[in-house]
Amino acid sequence: MKVAVLGATKGMGRALARRMAQRGDAVALLGRDRGDLERSARDLEVRGGARVGIAICDLERPETFAPALEAAEMALGGLDTVVVTAGLFAAQDRLEADPELARRLLLVDFTNTVAFCEEARRRLLARGGGTLCVFSSVAGERGRKPVVLYGAAKAGLTRYLEGLDHRFRAAGLRTVCVKPGFVRTSMTDGLPTPPFAGEPEGVARRVLRAIDAGTPVVYAPAAWRGIMLLIRLLPRFVMRRVGF
């Protein structure tokens, strides 16, 4: 596999990139902070043995998308898989108190993520196809009190990926939409840990299997598939009362 990962320096992206490097995939890391990217690249090089490319890419700066993917293609000598784990998260209370932050979150998690995926899609299709794996969230499954804005952005992203899968699968583009439940990473650091919380390593194992198989939707950890099925079935009057 020749894979570019946006968001590989932390959490689930870090764990996924390690699994890929360890089994011998060629990996390029895209991210905002050059120093951080270089540290992660060294980590993967020791674990995997192969050279790891890096390129600056910032979901708040759409002008970085094309050059970053271009650089990744050059470094890898091709490209057949693009993974996006990057995103912005903030608690609902903070977003309500800070409209500027809310606007940024919606822009990053929906509009700009979609724009990045469009750039990746064009490049993968131009090469005859490939896999686009994007981390959405179980937060997009239902309108819920603690994730009104974040959930709305992720709901939009999930629908976009579903449409992409329907439209381009025949042409060779496999779309994998990952819906993580609660996973212990720097993003959820400080939040109370609910039952069925997962670890990045377990999520990475499951996601890599889904990428290999081209599974269009994957919940991780697996228990969240059942949990979200129940939550989707709850009637509105119940959702209005409960706190989750």
Partner: peptide, 9 residues
Amino acid sequence: PLADRILAF
């Protein structure tokens, strides 16, 4: 646990 990268070997 989040600072768990190998830097050189």
